[in-house]
Amino acid sequence: MAQASALGRPRRVIPGLGLSFTITTSTLAALVLLPLAAMVAMSLSKGLPAFVAALADRRVLAAFRVTILAALGAAVVSAVCGMLLAWVLTRYRFPGRRFIDAAVDLPFALPTAVAGIALTALYAPNGWIGALLEPLGITVAFTPLGIGVALVFVGLPFVVRAVQPILEDLPADEEEAARLLGATRTQIFLRVIMPAAAPALITGFTMAFARGLGEYGSVIFIAGNKPMLSEIVPLLIVIQLDQYNYVGAAAIGTAMLMVSFVMLMVINRLQAWAAAR
């Protein structure tokens, strides 16, 4: 309990701060923070120029470009589809609603490798959906578009689960007030509902985007992994490791970690902003 008195108010009623705090922080330190620090250290172990050089590689830059663009595009699609699903699930009662509501969590629960091969089979030129798109000249599998499809699958539940509670708690009387003041349905949606749902929608969008940046399992099967074209950043890490280029892998990992930190800060800011309103 020495730690307890050092950390905050002394003489508290509830015991166990020392023990629980020790377990929590030592676990985090040993299993999360230390390994991440080891990665950052490794990335800089041959000096800053080597670090920069590892990232400035054309193939690495192309991978970052593809990954960011695909994640961004997928997050936009997820936001639109997720908003639609959240809206319909909260506003309307129809047969199968509960079923769809439960199914929204599927991408959270389905192992990414399973999602990966399923999506590949679906969107391959001879797959159920791929065969329909083929005559239209659209190839999904083994192109950047395939990456996007996989990331939409992965990102969708983030948006739905972020927006749904907000739509559920939206007070009916605000909409009624708008209606009595002469607003049309579109105006009510755009001026009353959307401003209320926007923070949650942006949070969901950002979470889907962040997840998309790091996603691996569901993407590598469908992406085709052509260097410079459809190779994602996490895959490059794997490739560097296979070549025993630890420093290069660590550099890419550190860059991704930095991006994750930025995203995390953005999400926190958004949530604080939404809570303040």
Partner: peptide, 26 residues
Amino acid sequence: VIDLPFSVSPVIAGLVQVLLFGRRGW
């Protein structure tokens, strides 16, 4: 920090183990 693993790519979760414990790791 507790939430950190959620926002890190799973590949990095594997990578850090290799960098620590791999043959050419720390």
